[in-house]
Each structure stands twice: as structure tokens, then as C-alpha cells.
Amino acid sequence: MFEKIKKDFTTMTWVLIPVAIAINIAIGQIVVLLKLPVFLDSIGTVLVGIVAGPWAGALTGALSNTIWGLFNPDSLPWWPVAFFIGLVAGLCANAGLFKNWWKVILSGFLIALTAAIVSTPISVYLYGGITASGSSFITAYLLQTGQGVLSAVLSTGFLVEPVDKITTAMLAFVIVQGLSKRLVARFPRPENAEVESGNNTTQIIIALVVVVVVVALGFVVRNMLAG
């Protein structure tokens, strides 16, 4: 078991992790500036999960939130969520779920379910269900209709997370496909990123179209809920 995990942590992996954390933070901050209806703060984590396996992804996630906590203290308590995002992304990649665009939607969905389940106890225990994120508006509404805290937080998670995590998984897939084959082959698990059918340019284009559609859907849903 440990020998297997150790094999994923080559020098390439150790060097990739800081870069992935920086990508998480850089893209996450740009998205905040643009006021998009997603967070996209775990693209780097999913990326490491794909090319270096689940444990490297999990480590990236946990460290990413800890370091982000230096200048955005609110992200600190959520490190277990990021840990599981990386872990599940890596497991999906090992199962071959990052090999073409519709499988990536499936892994994005699985990551979203995990994130919703893991974040619920943190949100309920630490914040009483109402966190600093904008989606707490939905939770508050559900609480007013008489639902319990646990089920209100969980249903909000199931509503909000898929949009974000499917976009994240898609963009991580696009980045991996955009890298040269020679570079990807230097990472521990290059086979996870091989495209099954068709060439990867078409896969990239389809994936980008899916991203635009999903984000647009997110916009529509948010505006419906707000108005």
C-alpha cells in the first residue's frame, strides 16, 4: 500500500504541487473578481489528482486551503473538503473517468457529491449552517420553510456544487489535454490523461462548450433564485 503511494510522489509530483496550489489561488481570485456563479478554486487540485493519483491530489487540496488561509482566513476550516476533492478526482482518474468529455461530467458530478457531503458537518457545526458564501441564501430560505439544519445545508450543497465541480473537472481536463504529450509522460500517471477516441483538439473544444453552457445555466438558476 505505502510503496504504491510512494511511487506517485516523484520529484515531478513534489514540484507540481506548489504550482497547482498557485493555480488554484490565481484562478480562484480571478473568478471572484469577475463575479461568476462558481468558485473554480480547485482546478489545480483536480489536475494533480489526474496526473499524480489520489493521494497527491488530496495533499494538494489540504495544503492549498491551509496556504490560502494566509490571506483569506475563511478558507482555512474547509481543508477536509479540498482533501476529498483531490482524493475523489484521483480515484475517478484511476478508474478512467478523465478520458473523454462525457466521462469528465460524471467525475465532476461525483466530486460535487463528495464536496457537498464533507462540507455539511463543517458548515453545521462551525457556522450553524450559515456560512460566508453567497449560497447560504438558499440554506436560509430552506431553514425558514421548516427544514432541519442538516438537510437544508445538504440540499443547498447538492444544488450548488455540481455546477462548480463539473466546470472545474472540465477545465482541469482541458489543461491536461493542452499540455504536450512529452511533458505529461514525465508525471507518475500519464495513462490517466490519454484520450480514448477522437483526437484531443475536438475533445478540448467540446469540453470548453460544456463549460460555457454549464456556467450560463448557473447564471440563469442564480438569477431565478435571486429574483
Binding site: T11, M12, W14, V15, L16, V19, A22, I23, A26, I27, I175, G178, L179, L183, R186
Partner: peptide, 14 residues
């Protein structure tokens, strides 16, 4: 360019 540039640097750094 930012993302791909930093990923390409990974190999050199390693």
C-alpha cells in the same frame, strides 16, 4: 499563458 507557462516550468524545476 499563465497556467501553461507555469506547468511547463515544472519539469525544469524538477
Amino acid at each position: 499563458p499563465l497556467v501553461f507557462g507555469s506547468l511547463v516550468e515544472v519539469e525544469e524545476r524538477a
